[in-house]
Each structure stands twice: as structure tokens, then as C-alpha cells.
Design a protein around this nucleic acid. Structure first.
Length: 255
DNA sequence: GAAAATGTTATCAT
DNA sequence: TATGATAACATTTT
């Protein structure tokens, strides 16, 4: 469930919890649940893959990592919740297999909302600037960098690179300006496509690269490989996706 | 039933 | 000390 668009769906489902007061907090988290009881929820927010429950003097941060899940006004049958928030109205939010943390600083001091691809505050010019500051970064790693593209995960990474026909091992600095702009634009555009498709339960059928075996453009088999510093699976067409890379420079003679 | 997977962080090694 | 690779964690689907 963890990419940014999925968190937006959770935020929308949980919007009605704003204004409610937490009367009971249970679960197997080691976090101090008592601290949550009696707190009035100021807002439910997201930043990238983070789900934030803003309280008057601190915030609760839920991160679902790879396997996390949640239920709104329901419970899973078998697994115990990591954290269950029960409100005065009887509504409850249940989180499973997730990371639970408290944030004691103001959220605006912790989060750069302009880096969140799902946010109204998303700033593509800032993403471009950050990419240009690290020209040796591989495209497959750049898209997963949460400081640049908060909310982008492995699915979005693979689909964006396929869309813009860029090989995952291309370096950011070697991309023509138009391709770099397209990478930034599609990181956001695909994320919103993802959101719409996920809401309609048709996300997977729109995958063109991720976990696919054949390129729908040229009919050649797609390549699957663990690439980059992030060591995540890339799915790509080595025929349709162009590799942009600076030629390795020979060492300067004489030292 | 093994393997892989929408991810991050702690730990070890250099 | 800082950087980078590896391990650890944990659940559902293929």
C-alpha cells in the first residue's frame, strides 16, 4: 500500500477524524499510547509515504514500509493492530505492521511540502534544481529519492521511466533538458494517474513496465534487474528506453 | 511452499 | 569519522 497516491486515499478516507478526540489508543506498538488519549485531532495530513495525525502539541507519524496496511472503522480478522485509535464518536483507525513515531517539532519545520509529488505545494522547479545538484545520480535512484520526489516508489519509478523512454541507468546529468523536465513532470503526472486508477481498482491493468514481461511498444521482452544504490527491481525495455550516460573520462595524463 | 515484493533503517565494513 | 554495502524487519501474493 505504500506509495504516495495510496496515502492520499487513506487521508481522504480518514478526513472525518479531524476534530474528533482520541479516547483510547491500543496496539502492540512500543510507542507511548497513553500520550494519545484525550488528544483532539487537529488534522490528518500526508507527506510522501508518511501519514500524519496532527494533534495540538505534537503529531503521530505512521509509515507503512513494505507490508503495512490499515482499516477505517473495521478490523482485520487475524493480525493484531500495531496501533488502534478509537475516537469519541466511536470511529476508529487501525494500523497494521507499520512504523509508529511521534514528531515533537512543528510539521512545517520537519517536512518540505514542496517535495511531495501529491501536494498542492509541489514545486517542479525545486525538484529540477535538486536533480541538477547531483548529476551523477542514476535515473532509477533519483526517482526514489524521497528528498526530491516524496511519495514516489518502485512502481511509479518503473512506469515513469518507461513513459519517458529513459533507461534506468541513465545519469541525471546526461539527460537532455527536455527529458529531465519530462522526468519531473511525469513523476507527478503518473502519481495522479496512479491515484485515479487505484481508486477505480484498475491500477495493475495499466502497468506497462512494472512486473511486466513484454514491451507493448516493440514486443521485445522487458529486462528485469536490480539496479542502482537503491537495489530495487527495475523493469525496462532496452530497445525503447534510451541510455543517456556521460562517457567515462580517462584519467588526466601527468597527474 | 518458496520467492518476491508498493520500503526504510540499523549495523557492519572499509 | 564518514561513506557505502548488507542485514534486518514483516505480510501478502504469485
Amino acid at each position: 500500500m505504500p506509495e504516495g497516491p495510496s496515502l492520499v486515499i487513506l487521508r481522504e478516507q480518514a478526513a472525518g477524524f479531524a476534530g474528533q478526540t482520541i479516547v483510547r489508543a491500543e496496539g502492540n506498538t512500543s510507542a507511548d499510547k497513553k500520550r494519545l488519549e484525550g488528544q483532539r485531532i487537529v488534522a490528518v495530513r500526508t507527506w510522501g509515504k508518511h501519514f500524519l495525525v496532527e494533534l495540538p502539541h505534537f503529531a503521530l507519524r505512521i509509515h507503512f514500509l513494505l507490508f503495512g496496511s490499515y482499516r477505517v472503522n473495521e478490523r482485520k480478522d487475524h493480525s493484531p493492530p500495531r496501533l488502534s485509535l478509537q475516537c469519541d464518536s466511536g470511529d476508529e483507525l487501525n494500523f497494521y505492521t507499520c512504523s509508529v513515531k511521534f514528531i515533537d517539532e512543528p510539521l512545517d519545520a520537519v517536512y518540505d511540502w514542496q517535495a511531495d509529488v501529491m501536494s498542492d505545494a509541489w514545486n517542479p522547479a525545486l525538484a529540477l534544481k535538486r536533480l541538477r545538484a547531483a548529476p551523477d545520480t542514476l535515473a532509477c535512484d533519483a526517482l526514489l529519492d524521497q528528498d526530491v520526489f516524496a511519495g514516489v516508489g518502485n512502481i511509479i519509478k518503473n512506469e515513469v521511466l518507461y513513459r519517458i523512454r529513459v533507461h534506468p541507468l541513465s545519469t541525471v546529468g546526461a539527460l537532455p533538458a527536455a527529458q529531465l523536465r519530462a522526468l519531473v513532470a511525469q513523476a507527478r503526472q503518473y502519481s495522479f494517474d496512479f491515484l485515479a486508477w487505484k481508486k477505480d481498482f484498475v491500477l495493475k491493468q495499466h502497468w506497462l513496465a512494472h512486473r511486466q514481461s513484454v514491451c507493448r511498444r516493440c514486443d521485445l521482452p522487458l529486462t528485469k534487474a536490480t539496479l542502482g544504490k537503491t537495489r530495487r527491481q527495475s523493469y525496462f525495455c532496452s530497445h525503447c528506453q534510451r541510455l543517456y550516460s556521460d562517457a567515462p573520462r580517462a584519467a588526466a595524463p601527468g597527474g
